[in-house]
Design a protein around this nucleic acid. Sequence first.
DNA 1: TTATTTTGTAAAGTAAACTTTACATTCTAA
DNA 2: TTAGAATGTAAAGTTTACTTTACAAAATAA
Lengths: 66, 66
Amino acid sequence: MKNTLKVERAILDLTQDELAQRIGVSRQTINSIETNRYVPSTVLSLKLSAVFGKSVNAIFSLEEGD
Amino acid sequence: MKNTLKVERAILDLTQDELAQRIGVSRQTINSIETNRYVPSTVLSLKLSAVFGKSVNAIFSLEEGD
DNA sequence: TTATTTTGTAAAGTAAACTTTACATTCTAA
DNA sequence: TTAGAATGTAAAGTTTACTTTACAAAATAA
C-alpha cells in the first residue's frame, strides 16, 4: 500500500512530530507509515483523512501484492 | 469506529464467508469487524472499499473515543 | 561552518489484528 | 419441525501495529 502522507504534510507545512501530536500517535508511527514500514489501522487513517481534509482513498491506495 | 458492513453486504447479497473469501481473510475477521470486536487495517478497509464500490470514509467513521 | 531541527531507523516491550479450530445459536428453506 | 446455512463468539497461537528510548544522518537556519 502506498500513501501521500509526505505531500499532504508538506501542503499543511507540518513536521512528522506535529502531525503525530495532532493525531495522538508517536512520531515514529508517522515516520513508519510514511516509509512503508507498516500499515496503519483504519482508525488512524480516518484521523489522517480528517486532518488533511481528504478521503482515506485519496491518501492511501492498494498496490500489487496487497 | 462504526461501520456499514452489514448493510453493504446485504446490498450485494453476500454472506460473511463469501465476503471474507473475496478479500482473502477469514470469516471470523469479517464477523469481528462487523461486531466491532476489532479495527481492520487500512489495507483491509481499502479492499472492502473496492468490493463495495464505496469510499473507506463512506463505510467507516470515527466515533467518540476513537 | 556551526547549531538546531527534522528525519530515519533500531531494539525491546505491549497491545491488538488476524488465523485456525471449535461449538452454540439463530435464521431460512423444505 | 427438522436440516442446513449463516452468524456469534471463544481460546490459543502468530504476526504486526504502536510505544518509548536512543542515536545517527540529513536538512535547514544562523
